[in-house]
Nucleic acid binder design. Sequence first.
RNA 1: CGGGGCGUAGCGUAGCCCGGUAUCGCGCCUGCUUUGGGAGCAGGAGGUCGUCAGUUCGAAUCUGGCCGCCCCGACCA
Length: 489
Amino acid sequence: MADILTKRADDYAQWYNDLVLKADLAEHSDVRGCMVIKPHGYGVWEKMRDALDRMFKDTGHVNAYFPLFIPKSYLAKEASHVEGFAKECAVVTHYRLKSDPEHGVVVDPAAKLEEELIIRPTSETIIWNTYRGWVKSYRDLPLLVNQWANVVRWEMRTRLFLRTAEFLWQEGHTAHATEQEAVEETERMLDVYARFAEEWLAIPVIRGVKTASERFAGAVETYCIEAMMQDGKALQAGTSHFLGQNFAKAFDVLFTNKENKQEHVWATSWGVSTRLIGALIMTHSDDQGLVLPPKLAPVQVAVVPIAKNTEQMESIRTYIAPTLAALRARGITVKFDDDDTKKPGWKFAEYEFKGYPVRIAIGPRDMENGTVEVARRDTLEKQVMAVTDIDAKIEHLLSAIQENLFQKALALRERYTRAVDTYDEFKVAIEEGGFILAHWDGTPETEERVKNETKATIRCIPLEGDRSPGRCMVTGAPSDRRVIFARAY
RNA sequence: CGGGGCGUAGCGUAGCCCGGUAUCGCGCCUGCUUUGGGAGCAGGAGGUCGUCAGUUCGAAUCUGGCCGCCCCGACCA
């Protein structure tokens, strides 16, 4: 195997950067901070999108699409929202260019917009401005809308998938007649994300609530799922916000209730982004390259014929055709790679590096023996199997890989999760990485101090697990329960 | 926005200190032999040395400006 990838142990960040580029997931574009998502990477996103979209539909949501441009004045209507996003907004000021002998084209100063337009960093404002017209009566509620879109946040420092100036995501925006309904929706969508992360991405996550300082700008409460990467750092994998009546009040979204009284509606919003691809990479991949869980692999099984000549290629094609058909009949995606410009060894390395979960090789030997060689990406094990009923075995193998990846990730998280009781212990533990469970007095001051002194933040106040009270590791003040500290992406 | 580094063929690089028109590997093209873990041999194509100016008979090399990107920090999903 060619030594083309930095080892995780040598430099985890470099390993990640190398992997994204060399596994052909994405590349840097000429536009600073923006990436080109290549077909292999976009294929993974399509799988995520399809699975999530089904889950959204199953929970009663519908898709719609709102504009990329947001009038500047909208952003200012909700005070904490504007404060949260103002620093990273791209602004459109003109609507026309004109040709210029010296510079090719220049902005036409005569074409200045009367009101500047913001490229959406998120769509709450334009959506709530629209909802005002949609919601008049309790009969119009709940409003359960999602959109798949791109957004722009002008980040100072970017990394492929993890933080780019433009990214793809989905944002759900719902309106409800009661507070309780909205809170239930927030929790329901958090649960959808958690199930998606665990069952599809094979990433174990902790459901929790953000502290005030980590809360979404404009939210009353932010729920999140937190995952642990192989280097022990935390990554927020999805958020679901209970927005209270903040946006309804800012945009005058009122409805008439059954008692014929006017009320502001209650809101939620929730989203996950292409950042999940980064999470996927950093959870499962190894020094040999990308590892994809079968449920998200654009192609689950790569079939590599080993042929000396055209006749042999044709007989392999005939030999394997029933198997390919049987696999496809089971809904398994298969690629039969009969490209004769590349050698089998090259293909093995390539499919391994790009994370195809299962590889089948067939050569003359197999045709004589009625076998195929089956290799699994997660463990790199190879096994010669009878070709008879191989489709059932592959289907089983794919589930086994999916499960194995989840269990490995869970074991890692458990190994790097521990409780500490004193700040001194904490300072040692945080250097070793992972999740630290510790008591916190609930004040932003203590949280800030820990952050400044150790670079660790409170990832969340977990919704599950140990709820026993104690004393804050820093101040000794009473604490309801342990929270999760970690260094984060 | 601070600190560090880098711009030479599609990619990775040597050359720069000590000026004389660019090295090597991968990839690409052609042919033959190969094909069960990134094939071998032979031949070939491919370059405004980031950019602008200066010094010089002559600049990838020296000087100055500009541009871009990457990495580390602060900020964030």
